[in-house]
Design a protein around this nucleic acid. Sequence first.
RNA 1: CGGGGCGUAGCUCAGCUUGGUCAGAGCGCAUGGUUUGGGACCAUGAGGCCGGCGGUUCGAAUCCGCCCGCCCCGACCA
Length: 570
Amino acid sequence: MKASSYYMPTLRQAPAEADLPSHRLLLRGGFIRQVSAGVFAFLPLGLRVLRKVEKIIREEMNRAGAIEVHMPVLSPSEIWEKTGRWFDYGPLMLRVEDRSGRWFALGPTHEEVITSLLARDVGSYKQLPVNLYQIQVKFRDELRPRAGLIRGREFFMKDAYSFDVDRDGLDRAYDMMYEAYRRIFARLSLPTVIVEAEGGVIGGSDTREFMLPSESGEDTILICDNCDYRTNAECAYSRKPEPVKERNALTNRELVETPGMTTIEQVSEFLGCSADQLVKTLLYYADGRFVAALVRGDRELNELKLQVALGAGELRMATPEEILELTGAPVGFSGPVGLRDEIYIIADHEIAAMTEFAVGANRADAHLVGVDWGKDFRVDEWADLRQVVHGDPCPRCEEGYLSMHRAIELGHLFKLGTKYSEPLGAVVDTPGGEQVPVVMGCYGIGVSRCVAAIVENGHDEDGIIWPLAVAPFQVVVLSLERDEEVARRAEELAVALEEAGWEVLLDDREERPGVKFKDADLVGFPFQVVVGKRLKSEGVVEVRCRKDRQERVVAPHGVATALAEMAKGT
RNA sequence: CGGGGCGUAGCUCAGCUUGGUCAGAGCGCAUGGUUUGGGACCAUGAGGCCGGCGGUUCGAAUCCGCCCGCCCCGACCA
């Protein structure tokens, strides 16, 4: 391919909207262009990378026995209504109306569609197991699209769905996908960390996410420095502390005026104690009842863990009005002492180790000090509720401590069970003649997000450093001389390399050498073959590796060999 | 959705406070010339309803209102 007739508009300066390295470099290198917030066009170079990522995913999915299909972007509202997600998805789902007033979703995911299809055509266990996947565009009207390809409203996803007659089959399908994902990310040169994740209330066990540690990530993961505990922070366990053995028999509860002090910082400063001697009370509305969730003052409540502990489908904070009505006090002064009986009190297990602490008094501008659980208020349920943080002891081993990292979620493995097969009627006959809903798993990879992640993981101040496997072209031949003879030999070399199986871009543009060097570094071709004046004077060209800047000087006929050897080393 | 910021040439931005030689710069682009191993130089030129609509005014890129778009932070932490 000749650069002179190709389309790779590079930019000297990144557009102002780009912040992260991947966003900036993909724009500058002429890989993508933004069309709207969270909506991107893939230019030729970007599409080549995307296709290569897809190809690797496709090969490994096929190898793992999954079979490719293609589902429509448009799916009718009726099938979403069967699972309740036409409502549950809320504004995240983009919807369109056709001319006759029927509503369609622009698919944010495809469980409903694939399960409906399967329900229609599969009726016997003999047709299972099957694992169907597609690589397709998805639409999600995100709260806030950001970071270029990392969180878009329209993006490419590989989504696979396994169907089995029983739980054992699901486990096998899941394991196959697990191994396939390991191979995929290895081939993409993405050093992912596999973490435990929370699948929500219905999710059940064995939800895993493939995370790329990166400052640009939106997720937080925790890694034990001693054992193999690796988890998404949203579902990290905390180690249960030893409860206090000796409890003061005396009640020394005391009301303290705390005018206008609604934050933990204000109260602890005023009382002259540290935040971990306070207990904060958070009021929630969960499936029709009000719940008071208690955590230590210096902790943050993990809402997902609360939801799981309560087994709640719906969970939201109580409004300021509700808090006033329930406690008689404005926001900032809620406490567990004297709460109405109908309010369920769930406390973080860390509080079991506390004694004589301070809480809100359920009265404006007042707190109670010297409070003890059990004595001053009841606890209906103990649970692990708090957010786990950097430096916490590992809940799984004795010696380890957890470190916290930002990460980009690239892949997700999920056991669905019969969540979709039941409402959509995907039922098969078992050998015994019994009818059972099929047991499903789903497995996603953010394909376009992977492209961004590869850049986040591989760049320097000069530009992108593509792994060989996904580079838009593996080799760029820089034809630097205006001399016709040299230019002709550069072209011959490019052709020869193509014939040797390399993907080559010949930079034959009418540009000065500096421009070509800068663009080659920016775009990030793994190898640069420099054909310049040394060809005429010494009969040699230079072969350079973008990643480690290694260079070999060889005769033109030796380039293919040099490339092959250097490629082995990368 | 809340908070903040920003919309002026293809890109990066100045001008706005104090309305009137205010349609500007650099890069990019076109043409000519000189250059040619790490984003060259000179000359000439093209390119903008100053995001949109409305208002104030003799006069608006500039002041006011509404709308649209884009970016960042947050979106329960008492």
